[in-house]
Design a protein around this nucleic acid. Structure first.
Lengths: 373, 373
DNA sequence: CTTTCTTATTGAATCGTTTGAAAGATGATG
DNA sequence: CATCATCTTTCAAACGATTCAATAAGAAAG
């Protein structure tokens, strides 16, 4: 057996002390050299070289725990995702990572799986890990005000992405839902559609209401009525494909009641996919018989058949803006007392693809008779 | 101003010492009580109660760095993803999280964005954080043997998911690609197809070759020839939608050369989506004129139009098996010297949906003439 | 010769927690 | 009284890194 003379390092990693012993210098010097601290300019070049060589030979890696403990900095930003399998979240996450990459911070990603219990557990853990900032990526499901309000209690700078807190000091970054709803209607209307069915988001969700506000604003401006029979509402259960399923079944029931609408505006892309399925099963061609417009522009929207026209949220951008905000909040943390709570509303944009078309093409209803029932 | 009498805790969090001071007991006792250590049964019930109350009142949260430093355990498992926007990875990740949740371990997720530089940086970081195990979720792109071989150097138990290392001590968990290829062909053949086009994976990728082996094995068994003109190959660039684009362009070129194939087997679902697009643009209906079979069964396969028949990989299961393996490796780490390197091959399964159908339905080629040039 | 400056390196305290050993109590036993 | 067992709590030493203040040597300046 090798002599256990040096004591502890039986199975443990090489530590600063190991490098010190091996190189003949003190731990202090090693640390100074390896971190290129300001004082390191006083260290002889030869020494530096030697130390670096030894460190490399021993494959020395500073221990994050020891380091963070002493420096009282974790160099991490917590990123709380509500459902990582949701492509909406995924793209935001990419924006976050891309923007965090050049900084000194590392993302600490956790996925709450849309479950409150996990949200709380992971939040506690992120706090134990002393994340210096927190980005919460909320998909539209399951934003429980009560749950989120916990975020305001602790002292960590926090930004919410994709959803808005109506009150409180938390900053948020999200698309302008009101404008999105408006643009969606405008798009369909300008294609000649006057009989437009709507699948709106779950009513308790604030963002969903804002979007609906936009829809109504446009309708009012052009004097279009939105008959009740053609306005349905998602319930927002948190099953993964539920908005597809709901989109399909809600569309089917609207078709059964009165199938004469010529366009359908869905709350999001997944809902739109479900609507397309229902319409097809009902014998409708898209877009010839009925246009379908989604919301979000998830990556699959472009690959779908027919490719889906949709209102794009700048998701990657939302992620990077969230990072910018969290970084400035962290910086200011020492200078000013925090407490901004500003809301960044990003502009949505209509992306026309195959699933929407002018009604005149082949529509069952002629373009006259703009206002109905 | 509040008296700065207690010294340091100006802006810092409440620490064990704070609780100790406030409750009148020593830090040791606090620690013992809060961790419910074995010795804590000797602590008076009243004391316990009191300590817990104080800790709660001060909102004390143990510092993960102090704790991990002392205990020399991080309680984390590193999870390296190659592309988090890939639904293939996403589902595996969910399996990992679901299985890790009830354990004492927390996943530390990082996304290498298919880039070597990031892979290395994040790997170094995970090692600095002393992850006790490492799960690498490799999508089929960009598995660079050289890069992965770095994983063998450090002493952390590691499992590879979704890809196989041909050599070395690393364990892997993946679908049986050979069998998958075989089953895919069997499915199409049993539907009556004899003129089958293939988009195979990038040649340098070992897993892709295995899948192709399965295809050839079936073809040989039934005496089916795979003409060169109908066998094309992805290049495997790492752009995010590249396999859709490649699938489309490769299919188009095959159609231009000889459009008489009645079925197409794609390397994965995204490729299949691209193939569908190309076939449609060429005027082919699916599945009436041409069946298309994917591979993976990503969540969107079922939502697609037409819904995609595919060979399912049990992705969530792969994730949970990876967790099981890493946990036993960690346990054994102390008992035995490590070094298994076993490979878990999971069975694939054909999922028939709308995109594949029997050829007799309407095919341009009659079911006679089974073997062709 | 003393003082000051520069260069080069180190000692020792510290971050917050855990833990084995030890120290006070209390009461009972030989 | 000494010894022992049982219960309750604390001491003090880690864990691995960073950093301020201090040391030491040589050179330049007064």
């Amino acid at each position: 057996m090798a002599k256990p003379k040096d004591g502890k390092n039986n199975f443990s990693r090489t530590t600063l002390a190991d490098v010190a012993r091996e190189s003949g210098f003190s731990p202090s010097t090693i640390s100074i050299v390896l971190n290129e601290a300001p004082i390191s300019k006083y260290v002889a070049a030869k020494t530096k070289e030697h130390i670096r060589a030894v460190a490399k030979r021993l494959d020395y890696r500073p221990d994050a725990f020891g380091r963070s403990l002493r420096k009282r900095r974790s160099h991490t930003i917590g990123v709380m995702i509500f459902d990582i399998s949701d492509p909406f979240c995924t793209l935001i996450l990419q924006g976050i990572e891309k923007n965090l990459h050049p900084t000194e911070f590392l993302p600490f990603i956790v996925d709450a799986h849309n479950q409150r219990e996990q949200f709380e557990r992971y939040l506690a853990m992120l706090l134990e890990y002393r994340v210096e900032g927190l980005i919460v990526v909320a998909n539209w499901l399951f934003i429980d005000i009560e749950t989120l309000s916990e975020l305001e209690r602790h002292r960590v700078p926090t930004v919410l992405v994709g959803s808005e807190m109506r009150s409180g000091p938390l900053g948020s970054v999200l698309v302008n839902n009101e404008e999105g709803g408006y643009l969606a209607m405008e798009h369909l209307y300008s294609l000649g559609h006057r009989k437009i069915a709507c699948i709106r988001g779950p009513r308790p969700l604030w963002d969903s209401s804002r979007r609906w506000d936009g829809v109504l604003r446009f309708a009012a401006e052009v004097g279009l009525k939105m008959p009740k029979k053609w306005v349905v509402e998602l319930t927002g259960s948190s099953e993964s494909n539920s908005s597809f399923d709901e989109g399909r079944s809600l569309t089917r029931s609207m078709l059964e009641q009165d199938p004469t609408f010529t366009a359908l505006l869905a709350f999001d892309d997944l809902t739109a996919f479900g609507a397309v399925r229902a319409l097809r099963n009902f014998g409708r061609r898209i877009p010839e018989d009925c246009s379908v417009l989604g919301f979000d522009d998830v990556p699959y929207a472009a690959l779908f058949n027919p490719s889906l026209s949709t209102v794009r949220q700048p998701m990657e951008r939302m992620g990077s803006i969230a990072v910018e905000r969290i970084l400035t909040e962290i910086q200011q943390g020492s200078e000013f007392a925090r407490g901004k709570g500003g809301v960044d509303l990003l502009p949505p944009k209509v992306v026309q693809r195959e699933s929407t078309a002018a009604i005149c093409a082949k529509g069952k209803v002629s373009p006259r008779d703009p206002v109905k029932t």
